[in-house]
Nucleic acid binder design. Structure first.
Length: 478
RNA sequence: GGCGGCGUACCCAAGUGGCUAAGGGAGAGGUCUGCAAAACCUCGAUGCAGCGGUUCGAAUCCGCUCGCCGCCUCCA
């Protein structure tokens, strides 16, 4: 078994991955906040989560994955620090917060499905509002240990008491004193230290979403949901916790603090953070200025959602990826190339033959790339090169390896192969095909070309070869 | 003010001390083809923002300069 290496933000190093209880891996990833559509930058993060999960399985691990859905905004303590975003949307759209959340959750799930991102099943895909009780219990435990205190404006985590100030900042490598230098917000006078953060917020009567608690009516603080839900389903110590780079300095720092304060045990073994999708400003597909593109913008352009998935593989998860329509189109070309190859396999008895010997070198390379901190660009290059060599050799005995690659890439190649084999064309289309064949045989090429254009207008493509004409749906998915 | 990151061909991007700097897109030429498509072949950075340094050897390490960005406040 090959060792799997991953960059751990805790050590700022690529480390060999060793879960606490192999082959089980407990994995918690930060999920969506559902008051707006998830834009493509968000979706890149979920493609990354999915890829990490697949990579772990590729290596024989059994992944227990939990993802949260934040359906309550996390406001901190500032009196006028802002409105809960879900509530804001709810007011704007004249809906209840629940309705807003449900709407965007459905959209999120749909987009994930289109990108072939496998989400956990409930309860492992968990909503914050379903776990208020768990959060309250966790806060109680922190209070019992004397590491939090109750004030009129809320329950705060006591950073000073928790093993001293130097502990906070471990992830961001920024001491509290350094953070102070640029403080821009006013702090609640109830806080003992400006770094203390809210576990439970009280006396904010304007908020629509409120729950009873031992300390009074209010709502949970910003970070507590992740601690409560992750530990509820996965235990006090997680093997992996992932999220966006932006979460390092505050959210994850505080999560560590409050979780370890409650349990006295290490919270996370491997923190993994993904970089952003950037360069969206110049992209014309934005429906309005300042609005980030969403998956629908790509499908509107006739692009396959899986092309976006493939685009994500073009850069390492820890590198920013410059987004543009041109880049997605390039990815679409790669996707077409692979699908075309699979289509060509359709006629062969690919499932029943062993792969050729030369293929194993690619399998080796692929696995190594993946295990090297998820080097998807190299894994992708390896895949494309293998296909090219297959064409060159006219030796198509590579399907078992390719399909194995696809358990990682998630491009649905197997499903595509089945569809290709089972493709059923409407009688009308077959009639046009036959008519065109007759025209070709009669060397009436004007008529043949006209019929081809007609087929294309109906979404079908025809390709001539020595062995005959092949009919197929146009490749770009709607 | 602090912390962190980035700058590799027209575009996306891997590579972080040592074979000819992956791969893809776009482009050029060619093979095949009634046409088209697909596929295949060939070409493409003597150079990795700039300057200096360390080293037998650097895109890769160090320093400075220029440019860009993220975070410290909701944010993947």
């Amino acid at each position: 078994m090959k060792p799997f290496y991953i960059f751990n933000t805790l050590s700022r190093n690529v480390e060999q991955f060793r879960p606490g209880h192999p082959p089980t891996v407990t994995y918690y990833s930060c999920g969506p906040t559902v008051y707006l559509p998830q834009h493509l930058g968000n979706m890149r993060a979920y493609v990354f989560v999915d890829t990490l999960k697949r990579a772990l399985r590729f290596n024989g691990f059994q992944v227990h994955h939990v993802m949260n859905i934040t359906d309550v905004g996390h406001m901190t303590s500032d009196a006028d620090g802002g409105e809960d975003k879900i509530e804001k949307t709810a007011r704007a759209e004249h809906k209840t917060p629940q309705e807003v959340a449900d709407f965007y959750i459905a959209q999120f799930k749909r987009d994930c499905a289109r990108l072939n991102i496998e989400l956990p099943q409930p309860p492992m895909l968990c909503r914050a509002t379903d776990h208020i009780g768990d959060m309250i219990d966790l806060i109680k435990r922190i209070l019992d240990r004397g590491l939090a205190y109750v004030t009129p404006s809320g329950v705060y985590f006591d950073v000073e008491k928790w093993r001293g100030p130097s502990q906070l900042g471990r992830l961001s490598r920024q001491s509290l004193a350094e953070q102070d230098a640029g403080q821009r917000l006013e702090h609640s006078p109830d806080k003992k230290s400006p770094h203390d953060f809210a576990l439970w917020v009280l006396n904010q009567p304007n908020h629509l979403m409120q729950w009873d608690s031992p300390w009074g009516r209010g709502y949970p603080g910003w970070h507590i949901e992740c601690s409560a839900m992750s530990m509820k389903y996965l235990g006090p110590t997680l093997d992996i916790h992932s999220g966006g780079l932006d979460h390092i300095p505050v959210h994850h720092e505080n999560e560590i603090a409050q979780s370890e304060a409650a349990t006295g045990r290490p919270f996370v073994r491997y923190f993994v953070h993904n970089a952003f999708l950037v360069g969206m400003e110049g992209v014309k597909i934005s429906k309005s200025a300042g609005k980030f593109p969403v998956l629908d913008d790509l499908t509107d352009e006739g692009l396959n959602p899986l092309a976006f998935r493939l685009l994500c593989f073009g850069a390492k998860y820890r590198s920013e990826l410059a987004f543009s329509l041109e880049a997605v189109r390039a990815a679409q070309r790669n996707l077409d190339y692979l699908l075309e190859f699979v289509r060509n396999l359709g006629g062969e008895a690919v499932d029943t033959v062993d792969d050729s010997g030369w293929v194993s070198a690619y399998a080796e390379r692929f696995h190594e790339a993946i295990n090297n901190d998820l080097n998807t660009p190299q894994a992708l290059a390896c895949t494309l090169e293998m296909v090219a060599e297959s064409y060159r050799r006219r030796d198509f005995r590579v399907w078992n390896t390719l399909r194995r690659f696809d358990t990682l890439l998630g491009l649905n190649l197997e499903q595509f192969l089945q569809q290709t084999r089972e493709a059923i064309f409407p009688a009308e289309i077959l009639r046009l095909r036959d008519e065109r064949e007759q025209a070709r045989r009669a060397r009436d090429f004007d008529r043949a070309d006209q019929l081809r254009r007609e087929l294309e207008a109906r979404g079908y493509q025809i390709r001539d070869s020595k062995t005959g004409s092949v009919l197929m749906p146009k490749r770009v998915a709607p």
